[in-house]
Write a protein that binds this DNA or RNA. Structure first.
Lengths: 338, 338
DNA sequence: TTGTAAGCGTTATCAA
DNA sequence: TTGATAACGCTTACAA
């Protein structure tokens, strides 16, 4: 049958009243009589009326849609963050448009442009590895569309950002390593232009300092986070003499590669090497030989808080929103009983 | 500065021509002079004009947005399917709205309703475990919004559906088991009202038949696919005497639980038990003791084909689209060298 | 080749 | 308490 959906006009006609009365009645406007409201709602129900959101969006110049851009849906850190974000968005009657930049700046720009022409009311973003220039995001801000970063933000860029307190987490990891007798503690970091990499480094550095262990530059590596790069840095570290006996790793997905590399290429050394990553992926619970521990982050809560921040900026555009940096604590999560 | 975005009206005013001329010029309409087009486009560029999509959507009664509903973003099978779907959608200039039913029928209904009032042009869906009633989806169809299923479809429901050829896959798995000397081959299936469960079963049955192995009902279990249910059925199977020496599993996420359960609760029997699941999750490559094999599905291609089917229904509503069942081959993927 | 004007569904302002 | 009407930005049939 493919009937055209009913409009308020249809309701008005059916009741011989005006569209404006219908509109008000449906919105429980105070100066519409109770009986009229009843009748309007009854007819709306009967005609299976559902408001045409495209008309409302057009009329109100507001889409009640938020964008979220993440590197990939295959990383559970981000999908969990999406879920937290969706929760607060849904509660505030907003829809969520999800985009994946796939670590490509060009794709990210396209997404921002698509989202902008779809008139999103605000954007939450974890930038791509390649994103070294914030022009596309500044443009959004200029157009009055608030932008909040999460997880990744370049050092020195003034945007609000919600992330993990990786600094204290790193220091705690070092504490644990030291308490277990490690002296040669390597650190594989992520891209150095991100604040979250710098903070990890600072925590690592200060952790060592506290235990009077000198910083050894040879033990510090930076990975691109792709598998070949991950393998490379592990090889470099393992060819040092003496090789490290412990490694702090930028994130658990990196840890997976590190474990594979060690198992395949350094099988004799592997059993003695202890690892700590960031993320505390549940899948490690399925491993027979899990890593020592992981710094459990709170992606769901990060998504929630970032969403709250964003909604706040949207709903109170008149206030001046100074860029805020929020960081949520990590907890040391042991995969093995110690 | 937060300037209002420029409209075609602004362009028209700037050039002292009519809005319709501007509109046509921007769309390269044939009966607009080349010089006019030039001038219009130049001004559009200068004013940083970008069409107001909400206006277009409203006017055209089309949103160029497709919905996709999946159980959860945490299952890589579905996120990869989303990626395939997005590829064809993007190529056809459609946006994609992603929703997670979280295995809840109620949530699924809400999502469908939200998507409908957002005037999606079509929907791709992998229904929730609870979905035993297609009313909400029939309603969409009635409203002229095509619906395509993927991965999961109740037996006897007439909707188009794209899924894996699980029948032949199951038979192949049984072949492999038999060739490795197994006789007691258990099968843990998913919800029995899905076609994809029935087909797995039929492949398993016919596989055994081919090798003259009698079907043993005790060796067939159905799991709810949540962890506690998964553990339960493994325990039941392992308490049989003789216990099975091989297991065919509904999917790899179920296999993870099976492996954990066997390792923890049946450590002596575990090493002799061989497992085959569906999915071929890449994460198994990180396991020291991976399962025997997995029936590799093609979620990306499933997303693509389902998207193509859906777009076809949208772009040619006049044709009559009989429900189609498409199934894509699985390949046996070995995790261990045999 | 260009312009005029209607109309999409809704909300909001003002008048009755 | 209710109604008439303009407006949002765009497309398009038709007129000039």
């Amino acid at each position: 049958m493919t009937n055209k959906p009913a409009t308020i006009k249809d309701i008005a006609k059916a009741l011989n009243i005006s569209v404006s009365t219908v509109s008000k009645a449906l919105h429980d406007h105070p100066n519409i009589g109770a009986i009229t409201k009843e009748r309007v709602k009854a007819v709306a129900e009967k005609l299976n009326y559902s408001p045409n959101i495209t008309a409302i969006q057009f009329k109100q110049q507001k889409t009640f849609t938020l964008g979220i851009i993440i590197p990939t849906l295959l990383d559970h850190f981000y999908t969990i963050a999406v879920n937290g974000f969706e929760k607060v968005a849904t509660a505030a009657k907003y829809n969520v448009l999800i985009g994946q930049n796939q670590e490509s700046l060009q794709r990210e720009k396209e997404l921002v442009s698509i989202m902008q022409s779809n008139r999103i009311d605000g954007l939450l973003i974890a930038i791509s590895k390649e994103t070294n220039n914030m022009e596309h995001l500044r443009k959004l801000e200029m157009a009055g569309i608030p932008v909040v970063f999460f997880a990744r933000k370049p050092i020195n860029e003034t945007f609000s950002c919600v992330s993990s307190d990786v600094y204290h987490a790193a220091a705690n990891a070092v504490d644990l390593f030291v308490s277990r007798g490690h002296k040669k503690i390597a650190f594989i970091n992520g891209p150095s232009h991100w604040a979250t990499s710098r903070d990890r480094f600072l925590g690592y550095r200060d952790g060592l300092l506290k235990h009077n262990i000198a910083l050894d530059k040879q033990l510090i590596e930076e990975s691109d986070l792709d598998t070949s790069s991950n393998y490379q840095v592990v090889r470099r570290l393992m060819h040092l003499s003496p090789a490290p006996t412990a490694m702090l790793l930028f994130k658990d997905y990196l840890m997976l590669d590190v474990m594979s590399c060690l198992r395949k290429e350094f099988p004799t050394e592997y059993p003695a090497i202890e690892l700590i990553g960031y993320g505390a992926l549940p899948l490690f619970s399925h491993f027979e030989r899990p890593p020592l521990a992981s710094l459990k982050e709170q992606p769901y809560e990060i998504g929630e808080q970032a969403g709250t921040l964003l909604l706040n900026m949207i709903q109170h555009p008149e206030r001046d929103h100074k860029p805020q940096l929020i960081s949520l604590p990590c907890t040391l999560h042991y995969f093995k009983e110690l």
